[in-house]
Amino acid sequence: MKVAIIGGTGFVGVHLVRHLVAAGHTPRLLVRAGSDSKIALRSECELVYGQVADSSALNECLTGADAVIYLIGILREFPAQGITFEALQYQGVVDTIAAAQATGVNRFVLMSANGIHADGTAYQRTKYQAEQALKASGLRWTIFRPSVIFGDPQGRMEFCSQLKQDIIDSPLPAPLFYQGLSPLNAGSFELAPVSVEDVAAAFTLALTETRTESQTYSLCGAQRYSWKAILQTIAAASGKSKWMVPAPAFAIQTMAGLLDRYAWFPISRDQLQMLLEGNVCNENDGFARLGLTPTPFNAAQLRYL
């Protein structure tokens, strides 16, 4: 099967390319100029150069493909640089749907995100809107909603590597965020980290399993971990111990309101809000429905740190 991938040079994309090639598929990647060094298994892939906003490049990438996978997602937007949630997480999906319809590609697999909703942050809202556009497209769709994804970043941005860099390696104490006035439950909100290898396996399986069509799958790790436990696990995997202190969310949000326009500031207001909401699967256990067993999140799995 020839599979067009939009976002195939990113963190999830490089792992997915390897899974697809191992399964006998041919990935065709839309590659931005200057991103050649990010291509995994280059000799096994077909390449089309261009950006998602370029309709001619999109059409070329999808022409002759059997399916398309859309992976592009960003954690922060920088409008001055043209990097926005609206452009990359919503409009890019809409344009790729149009290209699929124009080129006769009827199978579309989308990477969304766990915990999204229509009235959430700009990140959550644009992911939700992209899902709705795909469901209304008439294409044979599957949507995956991963929680926070961990795994060997291979030089890219990844959840645990970013926390190690910004928090564990910092000389400052690690912040245990909390809302309200009482610090008693600081750092207790929960996440369910999921392995990038498991996410790639789910996408690969969906391409050949018709039972996954018109289905949405939440992808969470086997266990829930508090923010504090996640930081402790990352510290242990890094061979460090880390002093942790309660950090009132309102103070960080105030600082972010002034500074999150700058890339050097480690967290945006929206990112902090989504962290405090937690990110676990309360229902719709996607891995069980797919017949896959998720990889545990522990220090041994974080050896790449």
Results as ranks from 00 to 15, higher is better:
Ala222Trp: 06
Gln132Ile: 01
Pro153Val: 13
Ile39Cys: 03
Pro79Asp: 11
Ala130Met: 08
Ala299Ser: 15
Leu20Trp: 02
Val280His: 12
Ile168Trp: 15
Arg303Pro: 01
Ile69Phe: 02
Leu16Gly: 08
Gly286Trp: 10
Glu131Asn: 04
Ile72Thr: 06
Glu283Ala: 15
Ser147Trp: 05
Ser137Cys: 08
Gln179Val: 12
Ile267Arg: 00
Gly7Glu: 11
Glu158Cys: 12
Phe78Asn: 07
Ser214Glu: 13
Gly257Tyr: 02
Gln232Val: 02
Arg28Ile: 06
Val109Met: 05
Thr233Trp: 10
Gly115Val: 12
Pro294Cys: 12
Gln101Thr: 04
Ile230Ser: 02
Phe144Lys: 08
Ser35Asp: 05
Leu163Lys: 07
Leu258Glu: 01
Ile252Phe: 15
Thr103Asn: 00
Ser161Trp: 10
Ile267Ser: 00
Asp119Phe: 09
Gln223Arg: 15
Ala130Ser: 13
Ser147Pro: 02
Leu134Arg: 07
Gly286Phe: 09
Gly221Asp: 01
Tyr178Phe: 15
Leu30Tyr: 00
Leu272Ile: 15
Phe78Ser: 03
Leu163Ala: 10
Tyr49Ala: 11
Gln51Met: 08
Ala102Val: 03
Gln124His: 03
Glu60Trp: 00
Ala201Asp: 07
Thr216Val: 15
Gln129Tyr: 08
Leu207Trp: 13
Ala251Ser: 11
Leu276Ile: 09
Gln81Gly: 03
Tyr262Leu: 14
